[in-house]
């Protein structure tokens, strides 16, 4: 009697097992949503954010611009108004609030260029840097001191006093030369220019060289 019932039930056993599995699979829907990490681990981000490796000095940036290094992109993270007022030559404007716009992603998320972020200070640039680094964008740098430092070191370098080391004078002369490149004029520079300007006016006149006619060789003595 029992055997017969069991046999009856056992004929459905595969169906039953399949049903159980399907039910269990349905249970997966009830599991809490897997929290996805968008970006690198926080611990790693902290390690990167603390190191001052990302900073690039104004002198380096000046020489990059003057040498027209093609492997660098300069990105201004201030708002459009300040960007239009003044920015580094050939800089691209990505306002901080539009940092993650799709249009700008190609500039930030790439391997080809080194990207230098800058703002007035380096506070906004750092904010942008941290967010981009969380998304693991590569080759990002921050201009140390930002445009304020740029003004004080490159555009308007302070003259070293006489008791300073020779290196300070060398630095001053290179910075001064850089500032001339960026359009600052110094009175003594103009004076020098006026002298060669006069020389340049002289037109070259072509004096045809008369070929000497070959004379029949006269007899010598």
């Amino acid at each position: 009697m029992i055997n017969r019932k069991l046999a009856k039930a056992s004929s459905f056993r595969y169906m039953i097992l399949a049903c159980i599995l399907i039910l269990l699979a349905g249970g997966l829907v009830l599991l809490p949503k897997y929290q996805q990490h968008e970006g690198i681990k926080p611990q790693e981000l902290l390690g990167r954010a603390i190191s001052p490796e990302r900073y690039i000095s104004t002198d380096e940036v000046a020489s990059l611009i003057i040498n027209q290094d093609p492997s660098y992109l300069f990105i201004d993270v201030r708002d459009e108004e300040s960007y239009n007022k003044y920015s580094l030559p050939n800089a691209i404007n990505i306002p901080l609030d539009k940092l993650l716009d799709e249009d700008f992603e190609a500039y930030l998320n790439q391997d080809e260029y080194d990207v230098v972020l800058f703002s007035n200070d380096h506070f906004y640039a750092n904010e942008a840097w941290i967010i981009c680094n969380r998304l693991d964008y590569k080759n990002l740098r921050v201009l140390e001191g930002g445009l304020n430092n740029w003004f004080h070191t490159i555009i308007n370098p302070t003259k070293p006093t006489e008791n300073m080391a020779a290196t300070a004078f060398e630095l001053y002369s290179t910075r001064k030369a850089a500032s001339m490149y960026f359009g600052v004029a110094y009175p003594e520079q103009v004076k020098k220019e006026t002298v060669p300007a006069k020389k340049a006016v002289v037109k070259k006149t072509i004096v045809p060289v008369k070929k000497k006619k070959k004379m029949p060789t006269e007899g010598g003595c």
Binding site: Y86, N148, V184, A185, P187
Partner: peptide, 24 residues
Amino acid sequence: TLELSEADVNAFIAASLKKAMVKE
């Protein structure tokens, strides 16, 4: 103070040009 523009670079350059042009 954060992110305060300390100087107007364009104005500074313009001023330097003017200063340089004026013959002493």
